[in-house]
């Protein structure tokens, strides 16, 4: 019964979507499209000077969304620590990892951190940036945690970094309010040389803060899930 009603509902909704969105055709050249994004594309190099237009949209044009997005991640990490943290941390080994696996993961770790940092600082030049870079750093930690049983999370450090990075983002934004521009997140630094590391004003700095924040939040989330008394059962 439930399935039939669900199916009817879905078919109705699907039919509605297909009849209305279905006929929309994608434009075949930029001239045919009138949108905010096309305007951004025309002026971005002169206004911001970041090679990666998506990054300049993410960090400056729609930077306030990104602040909200970082807040959502902060919330999720907060919720995870609140829900998953028990009285005691489980220290039991999941299974016997081999020596090769352990050593391999230790060897991999610094390179993953380095690669994550590379992705973060080149966010305004190539695809990538704070979010993917932060995820890569957290993955490095995740691999260590998966293969070895001696690593413990320094929660104080993680939440310190997390808070500090968030405050840096807002602080850099607030500086814009003091300038004659009187606008939050105003790009108060010079544009620099196009397509080099130190270009596009405050974008690399904000993206670095985002990278640190995402990295530490996800690391904290992974650690909390993994070491939580509810997170894993000891193998019988």
């Amino acid at each position: 019964m439930r399935k039939i009603v669900g199916l009817l509902l879905i078919f109705g909704f699907g039919f509605y979507l297909v009849t209305i969105i279905g006929p929309v055709v994608f434009p075949s050249s930029t001239g045919e499209k009138a949108s905010v994004g096309v305007e951004v594309l025309k002026n971005e190099v002169a206004e911001v000077g970041a090679a990666n237009t998506v990054t300049s949209v993410v960090v400056l044009y729609r930077g306030f969304d990104t602040l909200g997005e970082v807040t959502v991640l902060f919330l999720a990490a907060l919720g995870l620590t609140l829900l998953m943290k028990g009285e005691k941390h489980l220290q039991a080994k999941l299974f016997d990892e081999s020596f090769i696996l352990k050593t391999g993961s230790y060897l991999l770790f610094p390179f993953m951190i380095l690669f994550g940092m590379y992705i973060i600082v080149h966010g305004h030049l190539t695809p990538g940036g704070g979010f993917p870079g932060g995820v890569i750093i957290a993955t490095g930690y995740f691999i260590i945690v998966m293969t070895s049983d001696v690593v413990r999370l320094r929660e104080g450090l993680v939440s310190f970094l997390e808070g500090l990075a968030g405050l840096t983002f807002i602080g850099l934004g607030l500086v814009g309010l003091f300038k004659p521009a009187d606008s939050f997140l105003f790009n108060f630094l010079s544009k620099g040389t196009f397509n080099t590391l130190l270009s596009a004003g405050i974008i690399p700095f904000i993206y670095a803060a985002i990278g640190i924040k995402v990295g530490s939040e996800l690391t904290g989330a992974v650690g909390n899930m993994f070491f939580s008394p509810y997170g894993r059962q000891k193998d019988a």
């Binding site: 050249s29 930029t30 001239g31 499209k33 949108s35 905010v36 994004g37 096309v38 951004v40 594309l41 025309k42 971005e44 237009t53 998506v54 300049s56 949209v57 044009y61 729609r62």
Partner: peptide
């Protein structure tokens, strides 16, 4: 810019 997709 005419060769690129909409970034927003």
């Amino acid at each position: 810019p005419a060769q690129m997709t909409d970034p927003v």
